[in-house]
């Protein structure tokens, strides 16, 4: 009989971590994109020429969902789930689960707040076309922390499964 923690095997914990990462990033991205897309639609309804300048802002919160997906794929690769060779103890599986938490929470929160920052930046674009470049910088600053979370998760996964 396989060793378990809270009734879950190592593989179960790894699956849960991967699912959390994909769900957290996905929720953050969908809320963030909805926020900025609503505002961008309002701006475009009054001035359709701003569509091209607003599109990068609207797409930016989508990266958190991608980081969640990348984390899920890495968990499957590193633990051998894809290769069909997965054999984790409960403790190893729990560590994989912990490794997924940075992406899960930081991408959830940063996706929502990046959407809000993009709403403010869209206001800049609405006022002055020439500020479109500067407007991209502020949401990009929020992106930094989503990237950090992915780096932390990858390093932890490498350490745990290496």
């Amino acid at each position: 009989m396989k060793e378990t923690i809270l009734g879950m095997t190592g593989l179960d914990w790894a699956y849960l971590g991967a699912a959390f990462a994909a769900i957290g990033g996905g929720i953050g991205s969908s809320i963030g994109i909805t926020s900025i897309a609503n505002t961008a639609a309002g701006i475009v309804s009054e001035d359709s020429e701003k569509f091209g300048k607003l599109l990068p802002l609207a797409a930016m919160p989508g990266t958190q969902g991608i980081y969640g997906l990348v984390t899920m794929i890495l968990v499957f690769v590193f633990t051998g789930i894809f290769a069909g060779t997965a054999d984790l103890t409960a403790a190893e599986g729990l560590r994989v689960f912990y490794a997924c938490l940075p992406v899960t929470f930081l991408c959830l929160v940063s996706g929502i707040y990046q959407g809000l920052t993009a709403v403010g930046a869209a206001g800049m674009v609405a006022r002055r076309d020439e500020d479109a470049g500067k407007a991209l910088i502020f949401p990009a600053l929020v992106e930094t922390y989503a990237v950090f979370s992915l780096v932390v998760t990858i390093l932890m996964l490498l350490y745990v499964t290496g």
């Binding site: 909805t34 926020s35 609503n38 505002t39 309002g42 701006i43 009054e46 929502i112 709403v119 869209a122």
Partner: peptide
């Protein structure tokens, strides 16, 4: 509010940002 307000007021605020100018 960070989730609710953009969903509820986002479109109107977007229009306002252009109309203010």
């Amino acid at each position: 509010r960070p989730i609710y307000d953009p969903l509820r007021y986002g479109y109107a605020v977007g229009r306002v940002r252009v109309l203010e100018t």
